[in-house]
Every structure is written in structure tokens, then in C-alpha cells.
Amino acid sequence: MSAPIDTLVTVFGGSGFLGRHVIRELAKREYRIRVGVRRPELAGHLQPLGRVGQIHAVQANLRYPASVQAAARGASIIVNLVGILAEGGAQTFDAVQAKGADTVARAAAEIGARVVHVSAIGADANSASGYARAKAAGEAAVLAASPSATIFRPSVVFGPEDQFTNRFAGLARISPMLPLIGGGLTRMQPVYVGDVATAVANAVVGKTRPGATYELGGPEVMTMREIIELIVKITQRNSMLMSLPFPLAKIQSYFLQFAPGDLKLTPDQVELLRSDNVVSDAAKSAGLTLEGLGITPDSLAAVAPSYLWRYRKTGQFAHKDT
């Protein structure tokens, strides 16, 4: 078996939130890493994560098969992390998460490379959400082209650069009121980005079952209300929580889908919140979880204070309750 330093891993989507953590983990394990991104000139932040020459960014766009094939060339393992939370221009759910996943899997199959594909809990071909349907189509395409692929379905992922906890913390900083879509009753299992990255690296090493789909969740199942209450507590804000029924949230989303930054809310995101986002009993019974991979997940309460302090009025010097 080749030593890690002799093994090339191509990672698509490696410059994003999850990607930088996966790159760091693979670099620690001494793999050579090629990162396929749309804008290589904007991926310079990845270089310090490894040794000189260990990490190399190349241009690749999942909508253009030739660029994907070029980025995959010579790799023993292909990791696909590409995903979008909202559509924009040519970057549609279908183009990126369905057809794009198919393109990556076919490129890997052509060179006999193993595939590690990151999807999401809630992937469902019959979902009312375009995001969830595209995720399911991507999984099916990957397994059709590469039956031995490992698929990971994380719940909502949190960490220092996320678009989840940071979004609500940012809203709490500027708004006296935070909406609870559907009353905040949707159940989630927030999972730390570092734990997901470790799982991906374990799959690269070969510690996962071929053709298996793993569901990754943190140690606690929480409602959206509980998650937002925790964020408000950590940031020491006084925002009131207001229940927003799904029909009203759907109407507002048609206008807020064009809003900037943290204010953005799309109709598809409202649809996603109609369903719980937790690890299934079937995955637990089969050992297809973080715990099944020997990873003890970190909780939102344990990790979030280490980076959400910056949303307090006086940052890390804010008064702490005794």
C-alpha cells in the first residue's frame, strides 16, 4: 500500500467552509492534495495548512467536465464537497449538486479512483425542496458511476466560518427580534465541522465501508428554538424570539431571497425547515455514524463560545455571568 505522501487526493470544493477543514486534516495525514476550485487565485488561504508544495489549487468547474477530468488526472482518491445553499445564475441545485456530482463520479470512474462524496441529511428525491432533491440525485449518480463510493450525510454543520450560527449571531447583533420559522420546532443535530472533516479523512484512509452512506450528527438533538436561544445566550444579546408560521415565512421569503447577507431567506430554505434534520435510527443501528467511525462528536454548546464571542458588544472582554 502506498504511503500517504505518494498518494494524490483531489478535493473539489476544498476552498469552502468544510473544505478548508478537510484540507487541513488530509495535510496532517501527509497526503498530496490537489484542490479543484472555480477561482484558484482566491484559494491562497489553503497553502499554510500544509507543507510547501503539498497543496496545489487548480481551476475546475463542475459544470465543465473537461476541467473536472483535468483536476482528477493522476489522483487515487476523489473527494467532492461542492454544494450550494441558494441558487444564483448558472449555479443551480441541479447543475451543481446533481449533474456536478455525476461529472465528478464519472471522472473518478474513468481513472479508477475511489470516491468520497458529501451530501446532506434530508436528501430525498420526493422532497418539496429543490436542494434536497438535487442532493438525492447526486447520491444516486455517484453510486451508479462508483458503487464503492462512500457517502456522508451531515446534519447542519457549525464552526467558526459557518453560515448557520454566525448568521443568527449576526442577526441578533442588528435586530431586536429573531424569527422562529414554524415556531422553531424543527429538530436538528448540529455537527462540528472538525468532526465531519475527520470522518472524510478517515474515508480517504479507507476506514469506511465501501458503498455505504453515513449520517453525521452531533451529540445532541435540538430544536431550532433551542439552537437560537443558545446563540443569543452566548452572544449576550437581548433579542426576542417571534414565532413565524410557515405560510407567512414562505411569503416573506419571496422578497428576502434577494436580500443581502444574513437577511437572505429563500423559499427553498423554508421548505427544508418543514422536515427534521437528524440521524436516522437505521444509521445508528448499522453503525453508520460518527460514533461508528470511532469519533466522539463535539457539541454546539462546547464549541460555539470559542468563536461567537466576537458578536458580543465588547467581544471577548464582555461580562461573564458567574
Rank of each mutant, 00 (worst) to 15 (best):
V22D: 03
G183F: 11
G112H: 15
E30M: 02
L49A: 08
A75P: 09
L263P: 12
I295C: 12
S127K: 12
M177L: 14
T92L: 11
V115S: 01
P210Y: 01
L241Q: 08
V142W: 04
L180V: 09
G315M: 09
V118R: 01
F164Q: 03
T296S: 13
S299G: 14
R63H: 03
L46D: 01
S280N: 05
T296A: 11
Y31W: 10
G211R: 03
Q59N: 08
A108V: 11
P219C: 02
L26M: 11
N238P: 00
F246D: 03
T198W: 09
A108N: 03
H117I: 00
I77Y: 01
L265Q: 07
A318E: 12
E87H: 05
D6Y: 11
A318N: 07
P147I: 12
G88K: 15
L26R: 01
T92H: 07
V35A: 12
F164C: 09
D276G: 11
G159K: 11
V118W: 00
G74S: 08
T314Q: 10
P147Q: 12
G292Y: 06
R24W: 00
V37L: 09
D298F: 05
R209T: 02
G74M: 05
L18D: 02
E220C: 05
T213Y: 00
Q269G: 04
S119I: 06
D321S: 10
E110K: 15
K264N: 10
Q54Y: 04
A95N: 12
V279W: 06
M240F: 00
S146I: 13
T198F: 04
G211S: 02
A203K: 07
P40C: 09
G206R: 09
R153F: 10
L230K: 11
F12P: 08
A212I: 06
A95S: 12
I295E: 08
M188L: 05
R209A: 10
Q269R: 14
L241E: 00
Q47N: 04
R38F: 07
G74E: 04
I151H: 01
S239P: 09
T208G: 13
R29H: 05
R114F: 11
P305L: 06
D94I: 02
P154F: 01
S15P: 04
A282M: 03
A70H: 07
S15F: 14
R29Y: 00
A169R: 02
L241R: 04
G100W: 00
A282D: 08
L288C: 01
A259I: 03
L256F: 13
G13F: 01
T198P: 00
Q163D: 05
L273Q: 08
G50E: 08
L178R: 04
G287D: 07
A259N: 02
G74T: 05
S306G: 05
I228C: 06
D321T: 12
L62D: 04
K207H: 13
L62F: 04
A172T: 03
F17A: 06
L62Q: 05
V193K: 14
E139P: 14
R73Y: 14
E226M: 08
E30D: 05
T150Y: 03
N238T: 15
M224N: 06
G287N: 10
G138Q: 05
G211Y: 04
M1K: 15
P267R: 14
F158M: 14
